[in-house]
Amino acid sequence: MQSFIDDFNLCFVKNGRWEYLLNGLGVTLEVALAAIVLGLAIGFLVAVIRSTHDKFGRFPVLDLIAKAYLAVIRGTPMVVQLLITYYIILRSVDSKILIAILAFGINSGAYQAEIIRAGIVSIDPGQMEAARALGLSYWRSMLRIILPQAVRNVLPALGNEFIVLMKDTSIVGYIALIDLAKGGDIIRSQTYSVYLPYLTVAGIYLVLVLTFTALLGRLERHLRSTGADPVHNNS
């Protein structure tokens, strides 16, 4: 027991080392949340372009760009994308956090786009027809009728992508950004203590993910309590 208390003091109390974890947690949350928002924006845009093209043949050039984007992002490892963003594309940018947000947001956007597109094509074509028959434009119908239902249908898959993204940010140490994982690693390198720093970091990630999952679950139940069962939307 005494050795645990000594280890704890060494790893977290001495020299204020707990700040590595706290500051790191801040970086992790900042990068993850901003990247989720950026990814959602990209995801909606790409999903609408792709599904509009597939249905009406419109935007052939944009669709081609979107397909190339999906292929490149989904075809290369996240770490490599992060390094290329940092060392090549944004080498003149100083803020590592900004670089990380852009790299992760652009990466997650590709996965979110395909999830949202799956949601869009899952909606009964009659929904778009009914909206158009009432005089709504295509874009208004998309925004007010199709997307709200599409997002509700794919919320579990989107939530899964958010969780993956949150944990994937643990590789930002590659560009010397000190996030939660890197913070734990620094403590290990200073103290030569292995168990406590890494297990604590793992525990904090777990709590983050479980909290996030619970929040998403509440959102899902809320959306389900109003309106139809999204799978059988023969309304």
Binding site: D124, G126, A133, G135, G227
Partner: peptide, 17 residues
């Protein structure tokens, strides 16, 4: 279209509203 009403076989009400 806004000046023509249309009623569908499968109703097509908006389930989220």
């Amino acid at each position: 279209r806004s000046e023509m009403g249309m009623v569908f076989q499968h109703f097509n009400l908006f389930p989220h509203l």
